[in-house]
Amino acid sequence: MQIFVKTLTGKTITLEVEPSDTIENVKAKIQDKEGIPPDQQRLIFAGKQLEDGRTLSDYNIQKESTSHLVLR
Score class of each variant (00 low, 15 high):
Leu8Ser: 14
Gln62Gly: 15
Arg42Pro: 01
Ile30Asn: 00
Glu34Ile: 15
Glu64Met: 13
Lys29Asp: 02
Asp52Trp: 03
Lys63Cys: 07
Leu43Arg: 00
Phe4Pro: 03
Ile44Cys: 15
Val5Leu: 05
Gly10Leu: 03
Val26Leu: 10
Met1Gly: 03
Ile61Tyr: 03
Ala46Gln: 15
Ile61Pro: 02
Ser67Glu: 12
Gln62Pro: 10
Lys27Tyr: 04
Phe45Val: 03
Glu18Ile: 12
Leu8His: 14
Phe4Ala: 06
Ser65Thr: 12
Pro38Tyr: 12
Asn60Lys: 08
Leu43Cys: 02
Asp39Ser: 13
Ile23Leu: 04
Asp32Ile: 13
Thr12Gln: 07
Gly47Phe: 04
Lys33Ile: 14
Phe45Asp: 01
Lys27Gln: 02
Lys6Val: 14
Asp39Ile: 09
Asn60Asp: 10
Thr66His: 15
Arg42Trp: 10
Val5Trp: 02
Thr12Ser: 07
Gly35Phe: 04
Asp52Leu: 05
Tyr59His: 03
Ser20Gly: 11
Leu50Ile: 04
Asp21His: 05
Gly47Asn: 06
Arg54Ala: 07
Ile3Asp: 00
Gln49Asn: 12
Thr14Lys: 09
Ala28Lys: 15
Leu43Lys: 00
Asp58Ile: 03
Gln40Met: 11
Gly53Trp: 14
Ala28Ser: 11
Ile36Cys: 04
Lys63Ser: 14
Glu64Ile: 13
Val5Pro: 00
Thr7Cys: 09
Pro19Ser: 08
Arg42Ile: 15
Ile36Val: 07
Glu16Cys: 13
Lys6Trp: 09
Arg72Trp: 15
Glu18Gln: 13
Gln31Asp: 05
Leu15Ser: 00
Ser20Ile: 06
Ile13Phe: 10
Lys11Leu: 09
Ile13Ser: 01
Asp58Cys: 03
Gln49Pro: 11
Lys27Met: 07
Val5Ser: 00
His68Cys: 13
Asn60Glu: 07
Thr9Arg: 11
Pro37Ala: 08
Val26Ser: 00
Leu71Phe: 06
Thr55Ala: 06
Val70Gly: 04
Thr55Arg: 11
Arg54Gly: 05
Thr9Lys: 11
Leu8Val: 12
Asn25Tyr: 12
Phe4Tyr: 13
Lys48His: 11
Ala46Asn: 15
Asp52Ile: 05
Ala46Phe: 09
Leu15Arg: 00
Ala46Met: 15
Asp32Pro: 02
Ala28Asn: 11
Val70Ala: 06
Glu64Lys: 08
Glu64Trp: 14
Arg42Asn: 11
Thr66Gly: 10
Asp32Ser: 12
Asn25Glu: 12
His68Lys: 07
